[in-house]
Nucleic acid binder design. Structure first.
Lengths: 112, 112
DNA sequence: GCTTTCCCATCGTCTATCGATGGAAGTATC
DNA sequence: GATACTTCCATCGATAGACGATGGGAAAGC
């Protein structure tokens, strides 16, 4: 029997959008991104590190973010991710698409 | 290089919800469901048959819907899907979860 | 010294979506 | 009565995204 009380706290396909948005105020390291998402969403969005880092790789590969090593506020070695210009464009685009789709879904949910 | 202008018009994970919701007014066959989703969403939600039928199998297997053969309004052989009681419960549950997650995502998108 | 917290990362699995494909059966066209 | 179009069903293979498990190293706190 497929026991799997799907604890997925995230809509697939939105992770990139969330990360990009989180980086708008400034550079941040992976751990910080995950914590911030959790905090801002009141614990609803729980992004594990095994989801986060592959996503960051993806963003790097696409040039939406760049990364450089530095020291965290706690004096630890950390990789800081920064939004690129292309990343901002991508963010805008993904936001728009997101609204479009959510709007469409709402229409279905609200139909007679 | 992975060229693939993702034409995905649907948030993954929401298809079951959309189908269940579509079946609320009454039984409907697969083709009809796809058309209705497209119409109600103003062409945003384009569910292909290769997404739809696996999803319907899933719903059947879980007991959210039941199916019986009949004749379509155009006199064709068609399989009519009907929401079960369990299906209604599932629909309610998925709606709630959907709002919860969307709300959380909005908080992130709207943060300072 | 030991544990906890922070921060990085990968591997394997699972699931869902989708493009391509195929078929049967009714309707319309000429 | 052949041809083509639409309706309606369904499967297969590829792809990708998220997640659990796992591992490690380095600073902080006890």
């Amino acid at each position: 029997m497929g026991k799997h009380t799907n604890p997925s706290e995230l809509l697939p396909g939105t992770l990139d959008l969330l990360i990009l948005r989180t980086l708008v105020p400034g550079p941040m390291h992976g751990y910080g991104i995950a914590n911030r998402l959790k905090r801002v969403s009141d614990d609803v969005l729980q992004v594990g590190e095994s989801s986060l880092y592959p996503a960051l790789q993806r963003l790097l590969l696409n040039g939406w973010v760049k990364a450089e090593w530095g020291a965290s506020e706690n004096n630890r070695r950390a990789r800081y991710y920064t939004l690129t210009t292309a990343g901002r464009k991508q963010l805008a685009s993904e936001r728009e698409e997101f609204s479009r789709v959510i709007g469409a879904i709402q229409k279905v949910l609200d139909m007679a």
